[in-house]
Amino acid sequence: MARNVSTGTKIGFTFAAWAIALLLFSPILWVLLTAFKTEAEAIANSPTFLPQNFTLENFSAVQDRSDYVKHATNSILVSVGSTLLGLAIGIPAAWAMAFAPTKRTKDVLMWMLSTKMMPAVGVLIPIYLIFRDLRLLDTVHGLTLIMTVINLPIIIWMLYTYFKEIPVDILEAARMDGAELYNEIVHVLVPMAVPGIASTLLLNVILAWNEAFWSITLTSGRAGTLTAFISSFSSPQGLFLAKLSAASLLAIAPILLMGWFSQKQLVRGLTFGAVK
């Protein structure tokens, strides 16, 4: 990347890039700043940039009024739970496809991907009715199941592309060394694929955390995740801008941090390995 350009050009590009980037970032910045303002300041006629009376009361108010902790717990349970369950199902499947491929492996992979393309609304009604009849509506485990299934194709695809890069020799060496399948996977494959598995895990926690369709349609008060919780503020009865911002900040901050760490692997995951 060592192109020779004049400092002037570089300053110009830098300025333009930062200006656009900050413009894109401004809604997030707005949340960050407003979360620490008082309600009066947030809706003042002459808007302020930095909080004038820095306050944390919005955060405690959010917790008091609508039990943020409960929804956050649900979000964690669903996103982590569904990802772990997905890995438990996905790692053996990806092992099989990467290391014992058959003529049909490619078709199976494509088919798995195709299930991801089925629009949620196409199956919303039956799932809703099945959940109603099985009493899974508004339960954490019900939502976890759905989340596992909708992210499973991505998990398998990502793992598959990472496993493909591991030389099969090493697994064969393990077999020669007397390792049965369980040991081969647990003691050899998984430790070698730790970076790939970690980014798969991270991306899927992010996707599950941010998933809005099923969490809104299948949960309400009890098992509501943060997406459902935030959505319930679409008409902010009694909850004003600053508190809304505080709630939003709490909902997006952990994921934003995780996203920043995993952005390099993200490209690969989201394009099913088509762009690396």
């Binding site: 090493i170 064969e172 020669m176």
Partner: peptide
């Protein structure tokens, strides 16, 4: 299966376990 044959193999690529 290979694990039960009691043979040992040395591979061209060595096939060492990189994480150990």
């Amino acid at each position: 299966p290979p694990a039960r044959r009691g043979l040992a193999m040395v591979f061209q690529s060595y096939a060492l376990y990189p994480h150990m």
